[in-house]
């Protein structure tokens, strides 16, 4: 990693207490990807960084040093309306996806921009499903697993009237007769997803199940904390 950087657009994904008064910040930066930074003294009562090092806020970060660089500066870059309620949970979910799936120090400028835009949309109350599905699709594409949505596994155009079964490594294959389960998806849904159009309830349901399965493949069977916590909350 570059030893010194200044005024880098970035977000805090998560932070952990370190020693008595410091924080380890997992940041997602535009030019350097996901990096860990040590924010010395950031947990002191009068630390100027306290009100700044918050998730979901566009920041400009400066750091210096090697493997675990010291955070030197953190500035407010723009004011987003803070996420609240379910939008806040969606924000945690996006952060967990990045933390779990994007390797450290691997720049993904396109994904960074989509992430920033997703947060901005969540903060003004955009429909959550549309924001999450288009982010997930872009994330998979950045990792080299772009879902095939406009053509089937044999490169034929998707027929909106047909039912498909999505094979994670190959793409959608026309279903013979009745298919069910999270990998069963209508041609119409695949084409809607290709256009990021989630106005149809059926598209939302099928797309959520499909993306969940495809992301599950990338997580190699590990489950996501945010999903488990949300399920538990809904059960109370």
């Amino acid at each position: 990693m570059k030893r010194r950087a200044d005024q880098q657009p970035g977000f805090v994904l998560h932070s952990y207490p370190y020693r008595e008064t410091s924080l380890i910040v997992e940041a997602f930066t535009r030019r350097f990807g996901r990096i860990a930074l040590l924010a010395r003294g950031a947990r002191r009562p009068r630390s100027a960084m306290r009100g700044v090092l918050l998730s979901f806020q566009p920041l400009r970060l400066g750091w210096s040093g090697g493997e675990l660089a010291n955070l030197v500066s953190a500035e407010w870059a723009a004011a987003l309306q803070p996420l609240a309620g379910l939008a806040l949970m969606c924000g945690f979910y996006l952060n967990e996806l990045i933390l779990r799936l994007v390797p450290r120090e691997d720049p993904h400028e396109g994904l960074f921009d989509v992430y920033a835009e997703s947060l901005a949309r969540l903060s003004v109350g955009a429909p959550h499903a549309a924001v999450l599905r288009s982010f997930e699709r872009r994330l998979l594409a950045e990792l080299g697993y772009a879902p095939l949505l406009e053509r089937d596994a044999a490169s034929r155009p998707i027929d909106p009237a047909r039912l498909y079964v999505y094979e994670p490594d190959r793409g959608p294959a026309p279903a013979n007769g009745a298919a069910s389960g999270e990998l069963a998806v209508s041609g119409r849904t695949l084409l809607d997803m290709a256009k990021d159009d989630y106005t149809r309830p059926e598209t939302r349901d099928e797309a959520r199940a499909l993306m969940r399965a495809l992301i599950g493949e990338r997580l190699h069977g590990q489950s996501l904390y945010t999903r488990a916590v949300l399920l538990e909350l809904n059960g109370l």
Binding site: H14, F92, Y225, T226, A228, V229, E232, L233, L236
Partner: peptide, 19 residues
Amino acid sequence: RLSPLDGVGPRDVGLDRLL
């Protein structure tokens, strides 16, 4: 506190008892 990224859920912070 609830901390979804650390897997800390409602039962870990006694939300059921609070309710």
